[in-house]
Design a protein around this nucleic acid. Structure first.
Lengths: 184, 184
DNA sequence: GGATGCTATGTCAAAACTGACATAGTTGGG
DNA sequence: CCCAACTATGTCAGTTTTGACATAGCATCC
């Protein structure tokens, strides 16, 4: 039940619909977590059944009602329990680095192209992060730990730091692969 | 079928038993991938059934036979296909950063303790990486792209670069949380 | 002599996740 | 006027992953 905590974190900030949560995961939170709506909607229903959320339904654009969820006191309690529990890192799964690990089985030039493309992707991501960072810092609430913006900035700074490290690594990897390809 | 490719990468280097693969995932490859043996053994059997691996069985220490798997020509072909296919990044899931994102719902001092502990964990990890790096570089095959050590060094350099970036971020996060806790 | 840990392989139920299918109103552009 | 995109919620089958249970010889330490 890890998605449960992600949903609690988001909805604790302010009420959300399932659609809102899905959007935020794809945008602001994409460097931390992601889930499809097909996983989110059932989980929200289960959390309501377990008393962690309450739901207010109104007219929706489609054939179904639009449901806005709010965290209950039990939900906030559960969130605090989780935040105080010891952190156990999970297995990272990084296909990009796995390909580098397998370099001996690959064509160096072909692999270099993969990392060159990734370099461009990361540059784009860093530009988007810079925009978001400016917005968050403009809000002026980044020093107040009771405001969501405080945590948002922290996670954003992590995203930027890791993206920069990966960018440097990607460029170095391209260089090493090209050098190896010439020797061959 | 992503575990399949991880297994192909490892067994393409040299023959492995299921146990060997499990060990290597926990040690050398821990920063790239991990899987429990309960997932590995059935997958190896499926890969043999699909003709990607061949298996040689001998006497084992327990009640069952020890099985050593080798990659077939079909397996090497499948591996090359995958290495040439476009890379599509998957959703990273980072519980450590999620907690920072949720800072507004947490006790700053309690959260700072989590990141202080993580700082120590990363320092330990970096020390282990440095040892492995020295071993790999001592082998003298890190410039030869046909040798597994070439790829091993690449992935190790990624692990080091990302760990260092996270270390800096963790320290900064502790500092920000402590400052916020004093203001409160 | 007993406890612990390592080698070694397996099963199984449950949980988590993915990708596709399904529905329908509104808004904006060409 | 039609097409595309956006808002909004749901199901379902299949795949992947986790965590627990199960077995047994051998080595090492106390």
């Amino acid at each position: 039940m890890r998605l449960r905590h992600v949903l609690l974190v988001l909805i604790a900030e302010r009420p959300h619909t399932g659609y809102d949560v899905t959007q935020r995961m794809q945008k602001t939170m994409s460097m931390i977590w992601s889930a499809h709506h097909s996983q989110i909607y059932p989980e929200l229903a289960a959390m309501e059944a377990d008393g962690l959320l309450t739901c207010e339904a109104g007219a929706g654009p489609g054939p179904r009602e639009k449901k806005t969820y709010t965290v209950t006191e039990a939900g906030r309690h559960e969130l605090r329990i989780w935040l105080g529990s010891p952190y156990q890192p999970r297995a990272p799964k990084d296909e990009l680095v796995l390909r580098a690990f397998a370099a001996a089985s690959a064509d160096p030039a072909e692999l270099a192209a993969v990392y060159e493309e990734e370099t461009r992707q990361i540059e784009g991501r860093l530009a988007r992060y810079a925009t978001i960072r400016a917005e968050v810092e403009e809000s002026g609430h980044t020093d107040d730990p009771t405001r969501p913006e405080f945590g948002h900035l922290l996670s954003l700074l992590h995203g930027i730091a890791v993206a920069e490290a990966r960018l440097v690594w990607c460029r170095d990897t391209v260089r090493r692969l090209r050098a190896a390809d010439l020797v061959r």
